[in-house]
Amino acid sequence: MLEHQQPFAPLIQGGDTTFVAMSDIQMTWLSGWGFLLLQSPSESALQDALMSHTGLRLPAPQTVSTRGDYALLWLTPKEWLLAAPASETESLQAALTRQMATCLAAVIDMSDALAVCELSGTRCADVLMSGCTLDLHADTFPSGRCSRTGLADIPAILWNPAREPRAVRCIVDRSHARHLRDWLADAAGCPGLPPAQ
């Protein structure tokens, strides 16, 4: 068997996945996750399959539905991203594919394609909004919200996982992980703005 590396593996040193840690902001690569990209024009069939294997409901546009270790992110009108523990992705993929066999659907393992960086701390929005046109303040980008957009000149999915503590997850293509890390570290180094809004 061959050794497997997480999408951000080349970017970590000594096993430490945190690459910026200051009093008001911290940035960490999230590990142990798998991602399945779900595409299907048959929403109800997909809903049934998801319900029976994960207990998840299809989320409304630009939101995330969560249950236990699972999270389902809305991406496009016919596309969702299922986040699950890495150890379960293979079996989930098989189970969902089996159940969706009769209708058109794609259940594609994107675990190796996506890197997830979590920013936490009070300066989240300040750092991100230096390279993103979305309004990411906590009141306009509340928990449970996810949006595909541009961040640091690359495509990204931004996801606010919880009300407290303040955090935003950035999901990007693995090929951009290094750029994102360098860019975020550089942005975090800029002095803070006076707290407002």
Binding site: P41, K78, A105, A106, I108, D109, D112, A113, L114, D173
Partner: peptide, 8 residues
């Protein structure tokens, strides 16, 4: 259905 799986 089309899917870009380049990075996977």
């Amino acid at each position: 259905l089309v899917t870009n799986v380049t990075s996977a």
